[in-house]
Design a protein around this nucleic acid. Sequence first.
DNA 1: GAACCTACCGTACTAAGTACGGGAACGGTA
DNA 2: TACCGTTCCCGTACTTAGTACGGTAGGTTC
Lengths: 226, 226
Amino acid sequence: MNQRPDPSRPPLTRELVLRRAVELADDGGLGALTMRSLAQALGVKPMSLYHHVANKEEILDGLVDIVFAEVPLPSDGPWRREMERRAASLRSALGRHPWSVGLLETRTSPGAATLQHHNAVLRVLRQAGFSIEGAGHAYALLDSYIYGFALQEAGLPVGTPDSDPEVVAAMARSFAPSDLPYLAETAMYRVMQPAYAFGDEFGFGLGVILDGLERLLAREGEPASE
Amino acid sequence: MNQRPDPSRPPLTRELVLRRAVELADDGGLGALTMRSLAQALGVKPMSLYHHVANKEEILDGLVDIVFAEVPLPSDGPWRREMERRAASLRSALGRHPWSVGLLETRTSPGAATLQHHNAVLRVLRQAGFSIEGAGHAYALLDSYIYGFALQEAGLPVGTPDSDPEVVAAMARSFAPSDLPYLAETAMYRVMQPAYAFGDEFGFGLGVILDGLERLLAREGEPASE
DNA sequence: GAACCTACCGTACTAAGTACGGGAACGGTA
DNA sequence: TACCGTTCCCGTACTTAGTACGGTAGGTTC
């Protein structure tokens, strides 16, 4: 019937569609992102979206790439500092978009930003002196940690503080402390520490890992290994 | 109309429903698990399921707990060996049920098996000499790594071997090696190693982490810290 | 001015979750 | 034997998704 009912609305583009999709997923989760809701958010009818993306799968692939695009590429500083920075930005990007962690499991075709990101990280590691294999080890270890941490954070009820009274109460209802004394002990300890936030654990684990990688790097320097 | 069209079929139970649900998810992914498909697999009509579970959410919660129930509880051996064992079993359980990794992100109410599992792990760590806080650090670090690793493994196309020719080909199509030299380098290296499998990375990272925790434990022994 | 293209929409089909209201057998109980 | 409650199950139907199919209005091209 009509081409553009409201001519003041800018024409749809793939970029615009993806950006709005991110917003919808951010508040409301992936469940709130439907072709219909997305169309409505864009002031458009559902089927119009299909002129800019092939299907919903393609939108989901695009979303992952947008998240990676938000993580600044590491640059030329000392490798350990660069990796710390990257870990922090990646974690915060995953935290800003909690749905992205779940998506990583299913999305198998990386986008351009994702590939560039991987390349930049490998560059830092290689130039720091890691062997190809060592860089692979290091990268797998770092990313496993970061993803896993983000996954656990995403599983917590909204606020980062683990001491959310409702959660503690729900937990207390679900088991008798005497049956699970060690769990109860830790739960107690955390409740008593009003400042405790699970997010603070991140730095600790990252430190352990980077220390380990530093040792690996030193060992790779020696010719003894092979 | 009729109560049980096929009297030879055992009556539905919550357990039976959940077990079949696991099977459906195992082959076919979470997407293949619908109330309708589940009912059909059980030889029953969809609405019958609702007499044993409140809704699909409850099924999903149950699935996570089943996965944890498959992981043997650690026992009284040396903590490092117990943690290695647990890491291996947990990873393999997550690998057998790749959908479970994604579920962890959304499921927030742990089941009985899950709670018992946490308790048993904390017990090992505490009895090994970790402080409450140290055990928390250690646990968060270990699980982040294990979950994250499983997440990355789940993201790989079915077979564990990263050298799956189709994937490599798809990657090669999606970027010019000269633009992403470091990524290309690693991709090449892996293709040339026919034996390379991402799964083999697991032990490396775990070793780094356990080494770090061992040092932490030694440090906690000293009184200097506080 | 005919053919084509771009951007969009209307309609309609299919699959999924599930509310609602039975109904058939079985076990008391009287 | 008649009545009744309980357990397990089913039929129907509503709602919300994704998306195939086939337009249509306005530009663009020759």
